[in-house]
Simulated scan of single mutants.
Amino acid sequence: MRRRNRVPEVIWFSHSSCGSKIIRKHRQSRRERGARNRDDIKPLHNVKLYSQLVNPFTEKVACALALKGVHYQRLEVSGSDEVKQLSPDKQILPVLEVDGKRVSGSVDIIRWIEELYPEPSLYAADPKTRHQQESLADWSDTSFAFYWNRWLTAVEENERNRVASSGGILSRIHQHVDRQLGIGQDDEMASLASVRNIMDELGRRMDDLVGFLGNRPYFFADQLSVADLAVFGMLLVIRDGPMPRSIVLLADRPTLAAHTARLSKLTQQGIGERDSQSDD
């Protein structure tokens, strides 16, 4: 698998008005996840997970917390100023706060969770296997975020062009004449082809995962690891988001779809509590 340069986690969610509208328009209704009465709740008294509305790195952390049996509150961050306040050094999300102490970035957060609660472990005891798990997690984070941001940039550019071309009456007349003469159609076709190419490449990256997963329930035999969490977070957000054909792309790969559903069920059985203000 070709490794891409790491994409900062905060880039995943666009704070631009267009990006926000795109994501909110296609947002899937989510069932409120109230606290569960479970005997295995870990005794952390005040655990908060800060994130944007849509963030696959947050889903990765949320899954880890659920698997560890940690009760937490999920809070939505509204803008860049709040990100700087929560994570002044890295300025990235998600941020996990435990009894006043904060750690930002999903990689460091999961390592911290592993230190607090070693069981069940998210890493193999064998150093070589652990390195492979972390490498696959890193590849998933960077590769799928790369395609998401390419797609979102293309959509935002198309939206800006559409708004610019829908101005006054004179602009609409020019637009009508251009359509009659075939002017601008090449740009529109090129834009559509670009989106198709992005989705085709995304499908090939899913094929890479299918080959690696094989018929195993998890990427490393029967043990769920940080690699599974990383892949799950990315595919969950892609599947439920606005990218065209994303549901079909995943459904056409049954073993990968089953893997996503398997971890989604585990997360839904977790004990995360979404803040009441996050859906306002």
Rank of each mutant, 00 (worst) to 15 (best):
residue 207 D to H: 04
residue 51 S to R: 08
residue 107 V to K: 06
residue 3 R to L: 13
residue 22 I to A: 00
residue 243 M to I: 15
residue 70 V to P: 08
residue 208 D to P: 01
residue 64 A to Q: 10
residue 16 S to V: 00
residue 152 L to I: 14
residue 9 E to L: 03
residue 120 P to R: 10
residue 233 G to W: 02
residue 269 Q to P: 04
residue 159 E to S: 09
residue 78 S to M: 08
residue 122 L to H: 09
residue 167 G to M: 04
residue 249 L to G: 04
residue 12 W to Y: 15
residue 24 R to F: 01
residue 137 A to P: 09
residue 40 D to S: 03
residue 108 D to V: 07
residue 1 M to P: 12
residue 240 D to F: 01
residue 46 N to V: 01
residue 98 V to M: 09
residue 91 Q to R: 14
residue 117 Y to A: 07
residue 136 L to S: 12
residue 34 G to R: 14
residue 95 V to D: 04
residue 49 L to M: 12
residue 194 S to I: 03
residue 178 D to S: 12
residue 51 S to E: 02
residue 187 D to F: 07
residue 272 G to S: 03
residue 187 D to Q: 15
residue 115 E to C: 05
residue 188 E to A: 12
residue 255 T to M: 13
residue 17 S to C: 00
residue 136 L to I: 12
residue 163 V to T: 10
residue 57 F to R: 05
residue 35 A to L: 11
residue 40 D to N: 14
residue 105 G to K: 02
residue 263 L to G: 06
residue 177 V to H: 05
residue 55 N to Y: 02
residue 239 R to C: 10
residue 120 P to Y: 11
residue 122 L to F: 15
residue 133 Q to N: 07
residue 125 A to T: 15
residue 64 A to M: 09
residue 54 V to F: 04
residue 130 R to V: 03
residue 152 L to D: 01
residue 40 D to W: 11
residue 136 L to M: 13
residue 36 R to N: 06
residue 38 R to Q: 11
residue 20 S to H: 00
residue 105 G to L: 02
residue 137 A to Q: 05
residue 132 Q to E: 13
residue 280 D to H: 11
residue 48 K to M: 03
residue 172 R to K: 15
residue 39 D to F: 06
residue 35 A to R: 12
residue 159 E to Q: 14
residue 264 S to G: 14
residue 271 I to Q: 07
residue 104 S to L: 08
residue 112 W to P: 09
residue 224 L to W: 02
residue 204 R to W: 05
residue 140 S to W: 03
residue 68 K to V: 07
residue 272 G to P: 08
residue 38 R to C: 09
residue 167 G to I: 06
residue 34 G to W: 06
residue 98 V to Y: 08
residue 260 T to Q: 12
residue 215 N to F: 03
residue 97 E to P: 10
residue 125 A to P: 00
residue 73 Q to W: 00
residue 81 D to F: 05
residue 246 S to P: 09
residue 145 A to N: 15
residue 219 F to H: 10
residue 13 F to V: 01
